[in-house]
């Protein structure tokens, strides 16, 4: 029996109930949203379960949604079950005033640098990370450059305003 997105979702909801929010399957990749307090338990469950076996972390990155008050920062995990070849995307949201998210390094050692990178660019504080410091930017930097409040270009230019980029 091969593992399908439906089975993954059913098992997750059976184990954690309503805290798992189904985010649909954009382009075939099952996406779920998990409260940040539960994330380590969910990752461990996915790792340990004999049918789920999500034991490979493909990717971890941050996203900033300045308009979503109270859940401005997102951490997106991409997990992969290499045996059944099923992928899963998990999202965790945190408030920008309290950007604490538990660190996944104990479950996936590879999360170490990915979390450092996410901290470096978004300021997400991964609680329990063994060495949470900047990785690509200089240590003296006192802001988190990938947040949306730092525009890339000179904002006095009118030929490149956001309206021309499809959002205004």
């Amino acid at each position: 029996m091969s593992l399908t997105n439906d089975i993954v979702l059913q098992k997750l909801q059976a184990a954690f109930g309503d805290v798992i929010v189904n985010g649909g399957e954009p382009y075939g990749l099952l996406t779920v949203e998990v409260p940040k307090a539960e994330i380590i338990r969910v990752l461990l469950f996915l790792f340990d379960d004999d049918t789920l076996k999500f034991r490979f972390m493909t990717d971890l990155c941050g996203v900033h949604y300045p308009d979503e008050v109270g859940r401005e920062l997102a951490v997106v995990y991409h997990l992969h079950n290499l045996e059944d070849n099923v992928r899963l995307r998990i999202k965790v949201f945190a408030s920008i005033n309290e950007p604490d998210v538990p660190s996944a390094t104990a479950v996936f050692p590879t999360a170490n640098w990915m979390e450092r990178e996410t901290y470096d660019f978004y300021g997400i504080n991964f609680v329990g990370h063994p060495n949470l410091k900047r990785i690509l930017n200089v240590d003296e930097m006192d802001y988190f450059p990938l947040r949306k409040e730092y525009p890339l270009e000179d904002q006095t230019r009118t030929d490149k305003d956001d309206e021309m980029f499809g959002r205004g």
């Binding site: 990785i135 930017n137 890339l152």
Partner: peptide
């Protein structure tokens, strides 16, 4: 690492 960091992810957003 980071000696030739060029902020590609930020650049890509514009």
């Amino acid at each position: 690492v980071g000696y030739i960091h060029r902020a590609f992810e930020k650049l890509a957003e514009r």
